[in-house]
Amino acid sequence: MTILRKLALGASMIALCCTAANAADRTVGFSQIGSESGWRAAETSVTKQEAEKRGITLKFADAQQKQENQIKAIRGFIAQGVDAILVAPVVATGWEQVLGEAKDAKIPVILLDRGIDAPQDLYLTSVASDQVKEGRVAGEWLVKTVGDKPCRVVELQGTVGSTPAINRKKGFEEAIAGHKNISIVRSQTGDFTRSKGKEVMEGFLKAENGGKDVCAMYAHNDDMAVGGIQAIKDAGLKPGKDILVVSIDAVPDIFQAMAAGEANATVELTPNMAGPAFDALDAYLKSGKQPEKFIITQSKLYTPADDPKGEYERRKGLGY
């Protein structure tokens, strides 16, 4: 008995000394939604990179779009006694029970990329982008670029009714409000895909005097913009010159288009949600400092002046 107790004491002492000696030597569980899009794949690989950079052992669980898998993964992390849990929640509801269990086990939980409908004391913080701001940054770029010249804009919306489509539309409209020379003359959904983006843009160009009346194309994501750029080229116009192209996400292919002079601006939806999350976690575990409840990632604007070739090279291996 005494031997056992001594052993246990020794083990806990060792554990204590090591945590004290190297705060970065942590284990963090990450429950990812799945890999439904290129951006999500990039988020996963960036999270792994960020963890490695900080010497954090990352336990990764892919939920394959199912909440029950995420709940199972979180329970698994709790049982393994990880130091913190990152969750990219697949849905907004139904998290109270399992996050309560994590709280009882004193394991901080950080939400990535999406919010949830649950009491705020159940998680340490949430890291996400501001989609309205993304739209606004795109709109402000256009306002600055065209100046006082009249500009008829066509908009390729995301999937009808989806949160990013609603927010990115709202932000853009906020930015161009009060500038009477800029107006959205056509707006249709391209379902966030290249092929629909191309098809919708083809229709727009025909309806707008073969595209001669269009001054700019605003796409809610880069994929639709890439499709739209092809449609503009097919119509015999020069994307980036005859028609300005601004979109959101900053995926590698838009930088390729930018390097070729066919796209003018993109607003980054950073896949690096984990970096700020790890920083907040570090501060919290070291000094008990409560981070802000909502950490908003930067919505950075990229233009051809920002070395599109280099950006393409930097991103293409991330799994977009």
């Binding site: 439904e36 966030f192 290249r194 092929s195 629909k196 191309k198 092809q230 292919d253």
Partner: peptide, 16 residues
Amino acid sequence: IAAADIRGADANNAGL
């Protein structure tokens, strides 16, 4: 044809 049209294979959305 769908892939050639957008010069890329989009496994998530092609033919959806």
